[in-house]
């Protein structure tokens, strides 16, 4: 048995964004595809928190959805605990599905407003037939307790809770099928900072207690730094750098990672003069040729405009950049 719980290999997903058939015929336009993720490979070890960061449109959430099997990859494989996910076989997927869960960004949209909190949390238990009868509600009470709510809350509706409390309910629901792996897609970006701190602390406690493995998706670099063992940086659907937790912040390799770090407002009031960030993320329907970052990159040279760089291992991680190989 390897210690990698999740292995992602060459994961790619296209979306067809063509105009309707008739328009295409009349206007003689081609089919159009948007590449949301291209050739993404990484591993998540058991018990660690792996984070994916990137700006909007970088493909973070698409990867998350493919990993929890809500979306089928166009190419590439996902191996969970040594088993390749087979999107065709629903029986095999069902057995795997119990073992990974997801926490969504918006706790106002992810809980059914017409269901009691107890039923929301009990649903995975009943679906997977883990317990029956009165034991189900006892388990629900225990889960509510674990996430810092009270077992009496099971009879209430989601609207009776604040944003932070709802996110706790979402976490209890995710825990109820006793998963090993939880994908957290921007779990705190809809919350205020003081509540965010509560949820992040809770997530860490649960990880220690149940030995959970997290995939954390976030655009907030300071949250990612606080939570993760390893970090992958995405740009326009490609993984540009994978680095060990704090190392990304002390020695960022890829020019995009450096730019991203420079752009974060500084609470420490160090008065550092940050480099002016250039340009914006290009349209993913027509990404620039070669390295997608080259139009904004200060280090770009001819090769970057022609070839797509592959991840190469500099000390302490991986970065996909031609400039790094060139005499530092």
């Amino acid at each position: 048995m390897t210690d990698a719980l999740l292995q992602v290999q060459g994961l790619t997903r296209y979306f067809d964004v063509s105009k309707p058939w008739l328009n295409r015929v009349i206007e003689r336009s081609e089919k159009q595809f948007l590449t949301a993720t291209a050739d993404v490979s990484f591993e998540i070890k058991r018990g660690e928190t792996f984070a994916l960061v990137g700006e909007s449109g970088s493909g973070k959430s698409t990867i998350a959805k493919m990993i929890v099997a809500l979306l089928e990859p166009s190419a590439g494989t996902i191996r969970f605990d040594g088993q390749t996910m087979n999107f065709q076989s629903s029986a095999a997927m069902r057995a795997l599905r119990r073992r990974f869960q997801m926490i969504f960004q918006d706790p106002f949209a992810s809980l059914n407003p017409r269901w009691h909190v107890g039923d929301i949390i009990a649903e995975p238990i009943r679906t997977f037939g883990l317990l029956r009868g009165a034991a189900v509600m006892r388990e629900v009470g225990r889960l509510l307790d674990i996430v810092g709510l009270s077992s009496a809350d099971a009879g209430k509706f989601p609207h009776e809770f604040s944003g932070g409390q709802r996110q706790r309910i979402a976490i209890a629901r995710a825990l109820s099928s006793k998963p090993e792996f939880i994908v957290c897609d921007e779990p705190t970006s809809a919350l205020d900072v003081s509540v965010q701190a509560q949820i992040l602390n809770l997530m860490r406690d649960l990880q220690d207690e149940f030995g959970l493995t997290y995939l954390l998706i976030s655009h907030d670099l300071s949250v990612v730094r606080h939570m993760s063992n390893r970090i992958g940086v995405l740009y326009l659907g490609r993984l540009v750098e994978v680095a060990d937790g704090k190392k990304l912040f002390t020695e960022p390799q890829h020019p995009y990672s450096r730019m991203l770090l420079d752009a974060v407002p500084d609470l420490a009031l160090s008065g550092r003069r940050r480099a002016q960030v250039q340009g914006e993320i290009p349209n993913p329907i027509s990404p620039p040729p070669g390295c997608a970052f080259h139009p904004r990159c200060p280090l770009a040279f001819d090769r970057c405009r022609a070839e797509v760089p592959q991840p190469t291992p500099p000390p302490g991680g991986e970065a996909a950049c031609f400039a790094l190989g060139r005499s530092g």
Binding site: S194, V195, A197, N201, R204, D266, A268
Partner: peptide, 18 residues
């Protein structure tokens, strides 16, 4: 309660309640 890019502690200060 704000995680920063330079902090060293493992836990964030949390204000109880909301």
């Amino acid at each position: 309660s704000i995680p920063t890019l330079t902090q060293t502690s493992d836990r964030l200060v949390q204000i109880p309640g909301s």
